[in-house]
């Protein structure tokens, strides 16, 4: 068992594009679920829109990379409005049902061969990074050190990802200490009470859904930028993984989603390396491919344990726990 390699692999995920992508999506989910109490069970749909929005506008329409990001954002805004207008007036559970269904509808639309020429159907899309890589200010070479060594393209994705994440976290930080954030938290507690105080609850919920959706789409863009877009990535379990990251860090915290994503990916990678290795030397009585699937079971168990024993997450306020309804 090569512990050095396992630990290095795990550590590399502290700032990997996938981690940043999850963090962006989890920040979006913290706005929707953590602060506004909107049970969006379809964050994978927003991420898919971001990824496909970027890839299709690059391949089919040949737009430069920054306009592709704008298209991804616009697609998620339109999607949030379509989802929100009929459901935000209803009780919260309906939003969960509609978002989970909406994400599946999107995934199946991207998967169907009817739009093969745009979406690549089951093959997904590749080769949309041209404009992004052309804009790369890093000369060819190797950057970083130790586990965090990357080539110039990876470095550029990481930098753009970190910039977007910093912007997202800053926006959430500023909003949640403003009166706007106070109304949102009030809606999470009891929307009728907030309505009775003269606040347009529907508009606030819609703004939260759209803002979170934009961050989700940006997460999708960063998720797709290093390699390819594959419809199999945007399944419902992606939503649950982002939820795990969010709840791990703390749903109603600023940095919780970021920390949660880092912990999630480092642990994921660690288990994905350690379990097959353990199986290989005969400690686990399973085959090595079974062992790597075992980590997903452990993710599910972890999600349950968090919700039962530490619902406020790593960074959440202990005091709030006393009053969990």
């Amino acid at each position: 068992m090569d512990w050095g390699q396992i630990l290095s692999n795990s550590a590399s995920f502290i700032i990997a594009p996938a981690t940043i992508a999850y963090a962006l999506a989890a920040v979006g989910l913290s706005v929707q679920f953590g602060y506004a109490g909107l049970l969006n069970m379809g964050i994978a749909g927003f991420m898919a829109l971001g990824a496909y929005g970027y890839a299709i506008s690059s391949i089919t329409f040949g737009l430069p990379w920054y306009l592709c990001i704008v298209v991804a954002i616009a697609a998620s805004v339109v999607y949030a409005l379509i989802l929100g207008i009929p459901t935000l007036r209803l009780r919260g559970d309906y939003l969960a049902i509609v978002t989970i269904a909406g994400a599946e509808v999107l995934r199946l639309l991207f998967l169907t061969s009817s739009f093969d020429q745009y979406t690549g159907s089951a093959d997904g899309l590749t080769g949309y990074q041209g404009s992004f890589r052309d804009s790369n200010p890093f000369p060819r070479g190797s950057y970083g050190f130790g586990p965090w060594t990357m080539n110039e393209n990876q470095a550029w994705v990481t930098v753009i990802g970190l910039v977007l994440l910093a912007i997202a976290v800053t926006i959430v930080f500023l909003l949640m200490r403003s009166p706007w954030g106070r109304v949102l938290k009030g809606i999470r507690e009891d929307e009728d009470a907030v309505r009775a105080l003269g606040k347009n609850v529907f508009a606030f919920k819609m703004q939260a859904l759209v803002l979170g959706g934009i961050f989700g789409a940006l997460g999708g863009v960063i998720y797709a930028l290093p390699s390819s877009v594959n419809p199999g990535s945007y399944v419902t379990s992606l939503t649950f993984f982002v939820y795990t990251a969010l709840l791990l860090g703390g749903a109603a915290t600023i940095f919780g989603p970021v920390l949660g994503s880092v912990v999630f990916w480092v642990l994921q990678t660690f288990l994905g390396n350690v379990l097959p290795a353990l199986a290989g030397i005969g400690i686990l009585p399973v085959s090595s491919s079974q062992a790597s699937t075992l980590r997903f079971i452990l993710v599910g168990v972890a999600l349950m344990l968090i919700v039962i024993f530490r619902p406020q997450g790593i960074l959440g306020n202990k005091k709030e726990l006393t009053f969990v309804k």
């Binding site: 106070r182 507690e189 606040k199």
Partner: peptide, 25 residues
């Protein structure tokens, strides 16, 4: 509103707050 402080509950009641607009917030 349970997980808001008493003072936050009170401040939520005020009308016409400019900080309740998304961009001004």
């Amino acid at each position: 509103l349970g997980l808001l402080t008493v003072l936050e509950n009170m401040k939520l009641g005020a009308k016409g707050q400019s900080g309740e607009h998304f961009f001004q917030g």
